[in-house]
Write a protein that binds this DNA or RNA. Structure first.
Lengths: 249, 249
DNA sequence: TGTCTAAAGTGGTCAGACCACGGACTGACC
DNA sequence: GGTCAGTCCGTGGTCTGACCACTTTAGACA
């Protein structure tokens, strides 16, 4: 369970695996930095003592992991770490599980509650201003479900960013693709009525105020309350839909 | 930000990318299940209209992502979703960041605090018994730092498992490699003195009791207290070490 | 001086061959 | 008849060398 790479545990790693771990280690150690350009495939193959197809298998794998950016006619460049691959991996990992869309919300709550606690301790004035800005956007986009949804996401993302924890941030980014799917699915159930949206804005404002007052316990409490309201709302709408009173077209 | 795979957004996906997304989609849709055996490389290449090297690049990439298990002389088999790749991806993603080892603890706290809340609501009797069992192991291995550390990890893992949330579980498994590194690093600083270890056991017991009583707020409170004590302890030991009073050899 | 074209360098693809490993079949031996 | 060993076949692993497609660039031409 502890070994990072399965191939390392084998006694006889094949060529492509060797090349893969070769680059991975240079990437981990910082010997290769984002933006660096790799040698040509022919030269690299020669230098590493493998054939070009084998080298390409390794390079392609690294590219699929988002570590390399290979461009036709240009060359291969080291790519800055990107959470999108994490998201992809998580999606694939969770694919066979049932009710992932609901379950990923738990991960979201986990990350955000800890993030807002940290944010209470660490957030700079600029961080707070950034969050306040998303709050304004949220208010301005009350009537548009599309931009409203984006503003909602931006608010929560800004909180996680304000935590100053890159680990929380990366994980949050990783779950955000699934979060989006969950959000879209939910929008099928709940409808943005004025009463609901205004309550939503108020909840966000309450969260922000507690954060601005640097009160971790209160901030988390309000954040949890906000999530629970959303959950209740969704449940009620689901029930009413099944009762045939849904307003869906 | 929403697109799962970068290649999909390009207008002209190259062969290996096409094959890669082909299999990825079948994996996501469940058309390919864990344990399924793929056709031979030669047949697959023919069927998909690409050459064998190109097909191999895609297959190798899938294998690197942990989705395929390719064995020499046997064939390629669909692999059950595994969090180890997630851990690898996360490690690579966080590699350039400073102080990851400390930062990943924040993610750990985030996951566990939410997990224990869920566990209070959802944990079955078997889950509780499993946690209790790890607690016993913890007590039995007080004198051995090695097995003691493992028992410690097992206890926390059991709580996350008891949450019944596969998303939390996967993320927890994903950070566990980094958590281990952090743990090892910490063990250089803190020493397992009887007073400390007994306090540790007591803290774990308190957490478990609150969980068994199905009290989410209290369980989370005690869990946070447990983490903070560990944090304080580590800080103090670090200070004493720098003061030249460290007992390290 | 500006633009266009051709060449060089790079990744992308292909075909065919051979090697290495694993399992299954078959034969001999007990 | 059962068991074991050797062989054969299917599989992935690797290599070679060639050609295509894209990008950049430098030289030629207007």
């Amino acid at each position: 369970m502890l070994d990072i790479v399965r191939q390392d545990t084998e006694e006889n790693p094949s060529g492509a695996d060797r090349v893969f771990t070769f680059f991975r280690d240079r990437l981990l150690s910082g010997e290769l930095k984002a933006g660096d350009r790799l040698l040509g495939e022919r030269e690299l193959a020669l230098a590493l003592g493998v054939s070009r197809p084998v080298l390409r298998e390794a390079l392609r794998s690294l590219a699929m992991l988002g570590l390399l950016d290979i461009r036709h006619g240009r060359g291969a460049y080291v790519r800055s770490a990107d959470a999108s691959v994490l998201g992809q991996a998580l999606t694939l990992c969770l694919a066979p599980e049932p009710n992932i869309l609901d379950d990923v919300l738990q991960a979201r709550i986990a990350i955000e509650c800890q993030a807002i606690r940290l944010a209470c301790l660490r957030a700079s004035e600029r961080d707070l201003q950034a969050i306040a800005a998303t709050l304004d956007t949220l208010v301005d986009s009350l009537d548009d479900p599309e931009t409203g949804g984006e503003a909602d996401y931006a608010f929560h993302l800004a909180i996680v960013r304000a935590s100053g924890s890159s680990a929380l941030m990366k994980i949050y980014e990783a779950i955000s693709p699934l979060l989006m799917r969950s959000h879209v699915e939910r929008r099928r159930d709940t409808f943005r009525e004025p009463a609901i949206t205004s309550g939503l804005v108020e909840a966000h404002r309450q969260v922000f105020l507690a954060l601005a007052q640097r009160d971790p316990d209160e901030a988390e409490r309000r954040l949890r309350a906000h999530f629970e309201i959303g959950d209740d709302l969704r449940r009620k709408n689901l029930i009413s839909t099944y009762q045939g009173q849904g307003k869906a077209s």
